[in-house]
Amino acid sequence: MRGVPISWYLTLSAILFTLGVAGFLFRRNIITVFMSIELMLNAVNLSFITFSYYWKQVNGHLIAFFVMVVAAAEAAVGLAIILTVFKNRQTLNIDEVDSMKN
């Protein structure tokens, strides 16, 4: 057999995305939650590049590139927010950051 079925790549992307969602929902540490978001973005990038291969066009690469740029900007702002939250509350547990709940 020459090559890998394209569905394997898409399934791998789905598995990584699902693990990212699971981490996002189950973890309580705000930094780990943030890393799960990065994992989801990576999984979507893999899907974009696979579809780019399927259509033999470069557009998917460009979208993945923009996702990367947005992820970098998001990481910078998000980690600054985490720093501020920690400075004000001395905790990284997202269950304890609930002042807007009641």
Binding site: R2, G3, V4, I6, L10, Y53, K56, Q57, V58
Partner: peptide
């Protein structure tokens, strides 16, 4: 996507 194969060098536009 039945039978679509990915192999190295199959797409050179990247």
């Amino acid at each position: 996507f039945p039978g679509v194969m990915v192999y190295f060098g199959g797409f050179r536009g990247g």
